[in-house]
Write a protein that binds this DNA or RNA. Structure first.
Lengths: 228, 228
DNA sequence: CAGCAATAATAGTATTACTTTCACGAATGA
DNA sequence: TCATTCGTGAAAGTAATACTATTATTGCTG
């Protein structure tokens, strides 16, 4: 399956829109693979240039630095996630079912994603697991936020928090809870992959358990006080 | 107030124990201030050497690299936290009160911490907010975990999860929840400091609200099903 | 006071994260 | 159709980083 979505995102994230040229597309597709393999620290534009048989300086014409490329890639991921959630909850009637859908998508995204613009969503998912926090854990956060670097994430949080409100419009912290849901999902997967002592999830059976963990957590806070 | 605790930690984290020499102590005390100011990316041993009027090579004889120094500092923080929790819950009777104490300590640690070995716990707290995830988000996690780099964190999770079990011994995921509690606390503070759209917490009044957010979250999951 | 360990001074290396300059070919537009 | 400009590539250059190695100097310890 191949879906052609229009990836929005902030123009401040790139110098030349990578979607509009062959080189741009190669940068995106290959960088996903390389960052997944090497991690953002060991990934360099020089290595990428070598891989795609292009030139370091050419890549710098698209992205000011690798940090911006990372933020761009992760934004794409949040866009995809948000889109899936909106599609999937559009015709879902009860708020609780919607919330169920959200959690299901969060937990299963990489196993059920169409390829978008040749991007390997599975690899992107792995990047999100281990690199996404680095996008905002910078001394320049405030400046970058001001320039809209995190708009896609904010949109996603907005979508999810609205569903929380549908479930319980008296709940006081829907946004904080939405951040918590997103971040916790990735943390739990990361922890289950790397620290046996820190989770109850085995790498093998982690998905259904993480799902149950998240469902219990979300439904408990949101329906607390309400009987049934 | 000055408490002299014996900081345990893993011998693999340093080459020479920094607690045993004047230079070692200077490295620790000054690096906390510098990493807080510059962030780990812009912090270098060369700059630190200049600041403490020592030499780059001398610092390298204590820590193999700045990453290990960061992991060391963050471990100290987890040790302090763990200690505070153990002290504070030792004579607390009911499990729910213990959980209350834990959350209170997590939320208020920097405002109520004695200076330990001249370390500025407030600065250390800021480092934990914005740098602690980078300690484990590395391609070398597995190797580092094997060498005990994250033992202090694991101990803390253990302490907290045991309290969860006291509150409800049927709850399925006490460890995952403990990680969630710790990570969420720092995320929420970080988000409230940098992204107005992502939280319900204003920077000014964040503490009591974050506390209520966490209490509601924890008590809901743990007491769900149980009436009252 | 000799001897040793810890520290300092200095220099050196490979790599990173860029920037700059120039040159080429293809498309564009007047 | 010719001139221009655009995107790309090639190459070289720079300042800084993350170390390592060598040698000198201090200061304490037996």
């Amino acid at each position: 399956m191949e879906i052609d979505i229009h990836l929005p995102k902030n123009e401040n994230l790139y110098l030349i829109n990578p979607e509009n040229s062959a080189l741009g597309k190669k940068i995106i597709v290959s960088s996903i693979g390389m960052i997944r393999e090497l991690g953002i620290e060991d990934f360099t534009f020089k290595k990428l240039a070598r891989e795609i048989k292009s030139n370091e300086a050419s890549i710098y014409r698209y992205f000011t630095n690798k940090h911006n490329l990372l933020v761009y890639l992760i934004s794409v991921y949040w866009e995809v996630l948000n889109m899936k959630i909106e599609f999937s909850t559009e015709f879902t009637v009860t708020p609780k079912d919607k919330l169920d859908r959200v959690i299901d998508i969060l937990v299963n995204i990489e196993s059920a994603s169409p390829s978008i613009k040749n991007m390997d969503i599975r690899s992107l998912h792995e990047i999100v697991l281990s690199e996404s926090a680095k996008a905002y854990l910078t001394k320049k956060v405030d400046l970058e936020d001001q320039q809209g670097y995190f708009k896609s994430y904010e949109k996603l949080v907005d979508t999810i928090s609205k569903i929380f409100i549908e479930v319980n419009d008296e709940y006081e912290f829907p946004r904080a809870l939405a951040c918590n849901l997103i971040e916790t999902t990735y943390e739990q997967f990361y922890f289950s992959q790397h620290f046996q002592t820190l989770t109850e999830f085995q790498n093998s059976d982690s998905k259904p358990k993480v799902k149950r963990f998240l469902e219990t957590l979300m439904f408990s806070v949101l329906t607390k006080g309400t009987l049934n």
